[in-house]
Computed example of a mutant assay.
Amino acid sequence: MVSFKQLDGEYLLVKSNIGSEQSKCHQMPPRENWCLSGIKTHLYLIGNSTEGNCVSADEGLLDALLLSEWEDCSWKGLLKYDVTMCETKIIGGEKELLAQLNDKWNSSFPAEFEKNTLQPLGPGKPTHMKILRENLLFCIASGEKESCQSQLIPSAAIPMDGFLILVNVNPVEYGHIFLVPYGTKRRPEFLHKEMFYLISRFAKEISNCSLKVFFEHSSSTTPDYAYFQAAYFANPLPVELLPVITVYDCKDNKGVTISELADYPLKTLLFTSQNLESLVGLVAEICSILQKDNNVVFNLLVSDCATKVFLFPQVHLPAAGSHLSTWECGGYFIYNKRSEFDSASEAELSERLAAASLDDQGFHALKQLCCSVAVKIAP
Rank of each mutant, 00 (worst) to 15 (best):
A231H: 00
S74H: 13
Y174E: 15
G362Q: 07
M129H: 12
Q149C: 11
F233M: 04
S155E: 09
I165G: 00
E216H: 13
Y227V: 03
A57D: 12
Q361C: 10
P120M: 04
S108M: 08
L198Y: 01
A344H: 03
E205V: 08
E351H: 14
P171C: 06
P126Y: 04
L132K: 06
H42Y: 09
D161N: 14
E94N: 12
C371F: 00
T184G: 06
R133D: 07
I206T: 02
Y227A: 01
T307A: 06
S37E: 08
K292P: 01
P379C: 02
I46L: 09
E285Y: 10
E59G: 10
R186M: 15
A320E: 13
L132A: 13
F109Y: 15
L191Y: 06
A365W: 05
F228Q: 04
L269F: 01
I258D: 04
K76E: 14
Y11V: 11
L290R: 04
T127I: 08
E216Y: 05
S350Q: 05
L358D: 00
F341P: 03
D8F: 14
K95I: 00
S278P: 02
P110E: 02
P318I: 03
D360Q: 13
S49W: 11
A365N: 15
L237D: 05
G19N: 07
D304S: 15
V55T: 15
E194F: 01
L152W: 01
Q100R: 15
D252S: 07
A319T: 09
T221V: 14
H42I: 11
F312M: 02
V169G: 02
C287P: 04
L369Q: 11
C250M: 10
C139H: 00
V302C: 05
N168A: 08
H323T: 14
K40Y: 03
